[in-house]
Design a protein around this nucleic acid. Structure first.
Lengths: 360, 360
DNA sequence: CTGAAAGCGCTTACAG
DNA sequence: CTGAAAGCGCTTACAG
C-alpha cells in the first residue's frame, strides 16, 4: 500500500495546468513572520502613527515578503467590477485615439472599466504604477508599443494579472501574448501600388528603427522593390519618428536629393501629413508632383486634403481584441492556462487621392 | 434643565456643513429589514443558488432600499487607489484626445486612476453604468458635453460622489460644478480678426445649436459684426455638427450663395478641415480665395495645410482642472462642502496661415 | 509603543 | 431552502 500522498492527506491539489488557489496570506501570518501581534500589523497597514519605526520597517518587510493583500482586496473576479489597465506612451496622437476607442469597446463589451495611463516616456511598470494598479485592484493589463521591465512582468505573473502587448516592440518575451498587424504585408502592398502606377524612384520614411512595426514595414517595401527588379537605393530609406515633424524632416531630406523620389511611402498617417506640409512648402502638388501613401488609416485621413491613400491596420479591432484577451485571462478560473497568443490582424491598402502616375 | 438632545445622548453629530459619517449599513441591518437571517443575505450577495426566488427578491429590494455596500467596498479614500470616471460621448475626435490627455494628467497628478467610458449616444448615467461605477468603487465623475439624467445626479449625490461637468450643455443644474471656456470671447475675437483683415462677407458654421458652446460662439460672432457696424446676414449663419462633414456641408451651402462669403469662421477645427476640403473641391485656395478660422486648437491643426488660424481653448487644462476639482470633492472629509464652481478658462486667437485679406 | 481581549461584519458548515 | 452556531480576518479600546 502506497504511503498516503499529499492529496490523500487532504492537502490542496489542483488539476494539471490549473494553479492551486493558494491559501490566503492573513494578517496573522504576517504578524507571526514579523514576530509581532496582529494589532501591530493592523496599525502599520492603516498608517496609525503609534508604531516604533523599527517595528514598522520590520512589518513592512514581512508584508512585502509574504505578498500580503487585505481581505477583499484581491482583484475583482466578477465582470462589472473588473478593471483593465491600458498603458500608452502618449495620448495625443491619432494612433492613440483609435487604440483608445477599440480598448473602450472591448472593455465595455465585458462590462469592465478601462483605466487609461500615459507613460510619458517613463518605462511602463515603475514601482509606483504597480502599487497603484494593485491598490485599484485591476485585473488585467494591456501595454501599447512598449516593453515592460522584467520586474513588472515578474510581479504581474506573481499576482496572476494577465498582460497583453499591443503592437509589440521587437524584443518580445515569447511567453507574453501579443496583438499586432501584418506590417510586412502592408509595406509590400503600399510599395507595389506605387510601382504599379509607374513610379521607380519610390522612397520610404518610417518610424523609429528599434520598433518592430517600423522595421517590418520597411522590409515589406524592400521586398516589393526586389520582386519588381528595382534595386534598393539606400538614400531613399529614411528613419525618424511617427510624428508629422518626423515625416516632414524625412521628406525634406528626400526632396533635397539630386535625384528626388516621385513617391513617398510614409510609415504612419501622421508622418504622411508632414510629407504633405513639406510638399506644399516647396510648391509641389500631391499627387501630381509627388505621390504619398500613409499607414494606419486613422481618423486623420478624413481631415487631410487630398484624401490620403494608406494602408489600413485595424487598430480599433486590435485594441478591442487585446483587451478581451487580457480580460479572458483575468476572468476565468484557469487564468494561467490561457495559451499565450500571438495574433496579427490583416492590413489592407485603401486607395484614395494622394497617389497617381508620375509626371511624364 | 434642557432635555438631553441627540448629541448629549451620544448620537453622531457633525459640525455645520460637514456631513456626518453616516453609520454603515451592515448586512445584519438588511437582514432585519428583509425579515431574514444574515446568512441568507450573504447567500444572495454571493449569488449562491440555494435561496428561494421570492426570498431573493425581497432581500435584493432591501439591499437596494438600504443602499447597502459590502465592507471595504466604500469608495477608496486614499489617493493612489482613487478612481475618477471620465464620460465622453465619443472617443474618436481630436477634441476627445485633448480632453483625455488633460484628464489623464489631472488624475496622474493625484495618483488616481482614470476610467474612460464612451456613452455612444446613450445618456450618461444609465442604471447599468451607475452600478458598475459603484462596483468599481469610483470616487468621482467628470461628464463631458452632456447632461446627466436627474436620477444619476440624485444617485451620485446620495452616495457622496462628486460630479463635475466639463464643457457643460445649456440646461445646467446650477448646483453642479462646471468647467468651460470663454466661448463668446472666442467667437468675438475670431470674427474681429477677419473683419480687421478687411472681410465684410464673414460667415459662421457652428455646431449643434442645442449646445451652449455652439450658441456662445455664434453670439460672439454677432457681437463682433454689431460692433463693426456690419449687419448680420442670416444666410451667413449655419448650424450643423462639429465634424468635418458638418463643416463641409456648411461650407458647400455658403459657397453656393449668389453672394458667397470671403471668410468662414468654423465652430471647431474639425469643421474647419471640412471647409478646407470643400474649398479644395471647388478649386478655391485657402487663404487666397477663402479665409478660414477654426476653434479649439487641437493637435489636428499641425496636420493641416495651410496651418489653421484658430481660437485656442485650453482643453487640456480644462480637463485636468475638472478632474482635480472632482477628486478634491472625493478626497477630503468635507466632500459635500466644496463650493460648486463655475469656471471658464480663457480663449485666445492663434493666427497662422489660413487667413488673409480678401481678394481685391 | 505593544499586545491580550473583545468586538465587528461577514461567511461557512451543517442541522433541520 | 433557512438560520443558529461557529469561525475568520481584521480592528478597536484599553491596560500596561
Amino acid at each position: 500500500m502506497p504511503a498516503p500522498d499529499d492529496a490523500a492527506a487532504g492537502a490542496v491539489r489542483s488539476p494539471v495546468g490549473v494553479p492551486a488557489a493558494r491559501p490566503r496570506v492573513t494578517l496573522a501570518d504576517v504578524a507571526r513572520a514579523a514576530g509581532v501581534s496582529s494589532p501591530t500589523v493592523s496599525k502599520v497597514l492603516n498608517e496609525r502613527g503609534d508604531v516604533a519605526p523599527e517595528t514598522r520597517d520590520r512589518v513592512l518587510a514581512a508584508l512585502d515578503a509574504a505578498g500580503y493583500r487585505r481581505r477583499g482586496t484581491t482583484p475583482a473576479r466578477r465582470p462589472g467590477s473588473l478593471l483593465v489597465e491600458l498603458v500608452l506612451s502618449d495620448l495625443d496622437s491619432p494612433y492613440a485615439v483609435e487604440v483608445l476607442a477599440g480598448a473602450e469597446e472591448g472593455a465595455a463589451a465585458s462590462g469592465a472599466g478601462l483605466v487609461v495611463t500615459a507613460a510619458h516616456g517613463r518605462r511602463a511598470g515603475g514601482g509606483r504604477w504597480l502599487s497603484r494598479l494593485r491598490a485599484r485592484r485591476s485585473s488585467a493589463v494591456v501595454l501599447v508599443i512598449s516593453d515592460p521591465g522584467p520586474d513588472a512582468v515578474e510581479e504581474l505573473r506573481r499576482t496572476g494579472t494577465p498582460l497583453v502587448l499591443l503592437d509589440p516592440v521587437g524584443t518580445r518575451d515569447p511567453g507574453l501574448p501579443t496583438v499586432g498587424a501584418t506590417n510586412w504585408n502592408g509595406g509590400l502592398s503600399a510599395t507595389e501600388h506605387l510601382l504599379g502606377l509607374g513610379h521607380r524612384r519610390v522612397a520610404v520614411v518610417s518610424g523609429d528603427p528599434s520598433l518592430a512595426c517600423s522595421q517590418e514595414r520597411v522590409d515589406g517595401y524592400r521586398a516589393a522593390l526586389g520582386r519588381a527588379g528595382v534595386p534598393v537605393d539606400e538614400d531613399l530609406v529614411r528613419w525618424g519618428d511617427f510624428t508629422p515633424e518626423g515625416g516632414r524632416r524625412g521628406a525634406a531630406a528626400l526632396l533635397d536629393l539630386a535625384d528626388p523620389p516621385t513617391a513617398i511611402f510614409a510609415g504612419s498617417d501622421s508622418q504622411a501629413s508632414g510629407v504633405y506640409q513639406e510638399a506644399r512648402a516647396r510648391g509641389l502638388a500631391v499627387p501630381e508632383d509627388l505621390s504619398v501613401v500613409g499607414f494606419d488609416d486613422v481618423a486623420l485621413c478624413q481631415y487631410l486634403s487630398p484624401p490620403l491613400t494608406t494602408v489600413r491596420q485595424p487598430l480599433v479591432d486590435m485594441a478591442s481584441h487585446a483587451v478581451r484577451l487580457a480580460l479572458e485571462g483575468a476572468g476565468g478560473e484557469a487564468a494561467d492556462v490561457v495559451t499565450p497568443q500571438h495574433v496579427q490582424l490583416a492590413t489592407r491598402l485603401v486607395v484614395r487621392e494622394s497617389t497617381a502616375p508620375p509626371r511624364a
